[in-house]
């Protein structure tokens, strides 16, 4: 299972995910331009927070970067693979092998128990479960004793942690998380964040998370601020105060 960490060349010059002039417009009666030309490199092994007000395009950016959605225009490169022109199934396989995604709405399958939900990406990929790794995830995410439960029997925070375990179980090279601490109290949120960062460091993962929380964002190495579908600002090694100030600035 360590293949991913050992065979991928560690080159700082090549980012884990690269977006070049990415546009995304949702078709409809009134087309919505969610992204209007985003160019962004997400460096290997880094933790990046994406911030912005509601409707600024954060979730769309995350979906497009993760290969869950196709850009209307522009290029998305995951690892060394340009996603343009990939068949939907090739894209799905690429995603399954390299990307973990924590959904804001958890996206757990209602009739599968916690363990089956976590194992799902492995089952779909035809891979066997690394029991030690699963036990470690379950233990460190505080899910011990819950693996037999159905999603409907979990609290919001528990469901969130199951979603995180599912995103990490394949040891992806990039982890995207849409408001991963949104449903958690600040203490649990801090723990979950710690786990994400810890795992990222150990597995040399790239982490990209969308958040509203300045404290969470300040834990990242880099904060990208989005407004109206464009990158408007960037902070490196930010403090909570800096992040809060910038966010307030966006609101004006």
């Amino acid at each position: 299972m360590d293949i991913h960490t050992t065979t991928l060349p560690r080159t700082t010059t090549q980012p884990a995910v690269r977006l070049v002039d990415v546009h995304k417009t949702y078709a409809g009666a009134t087309p919505v331009a969610a992204l209007r030309g985003v160019t962004l490199d997400l460096g290997r092994g880094t933790v990046t927070a994406i911030m912005g007000q509601s409707g600024s395009g954060k979730s769309t950016l995350l979906n497009v970067a993760a290969g869950l959605d196709q850009p209307t225009r522009g290029r998305v490169v995951i690892g060394d693979q340009d996603t343009a022109g990939l068949s939907p199934d090739r894209l799905t396989r690429l995603r399954r092998e390299q990307v973990g995604f924590v959904f804001q709405s958890y996206n757990l399958i209602g009739h599968l128990d916690v363990r089956a939900n976590i194992e799902l990406p492995l089952v779909l990929g035809g891979r066997s479960t690394d029991e030690a790794w699963l036990a470690e995830l379950v233990g460190s995410l505080g899910l011990t004793g819950l693996t037999g439960r159905l999603p409907g029997e979990l609290s919001g925070g528990q469901a969130q942690r199951v979603a995180i375990a599912r995103a990490l179980v394949t040891r992806p090279t990039v982890v995207f998380a849409d408001e991963p601490t949104g449903a958690l109290d600040s203490r649990t949120g801090a723990q979950v964040l710690e786990l994400l960062r810890d795992t990222a460091r150990r597995l040399d993962q790239t982490v990209v998370l969308v958040t509203h929380d300045s404290v969470v964002a300040a834990a990242a190495e880099r904060v990208v601020l989005l407004a109206d579908g464009l990158v408007v600002d960037e902070l490196l090694a930010p403090t909570v105060e800096q992040v809060t100030a910038r966010m307030l600035g966006l609101g004006r």
């Binding site: 869950l68 939907p88 199934d89 996206n107 209602g110 799902l120 779909l124 990929g125």
Partner: peptide, 15 residues
């Protein structure tokens, strides 16, 4: 919804 969720988790269309 369930089928769509399977796809987000990495199920190919064939699957």
């Amino acid at each position: 919804r369930e089928l769509a969720l399977l796809r987000t988790v990495g199920a190919t269309r064939g699957q």
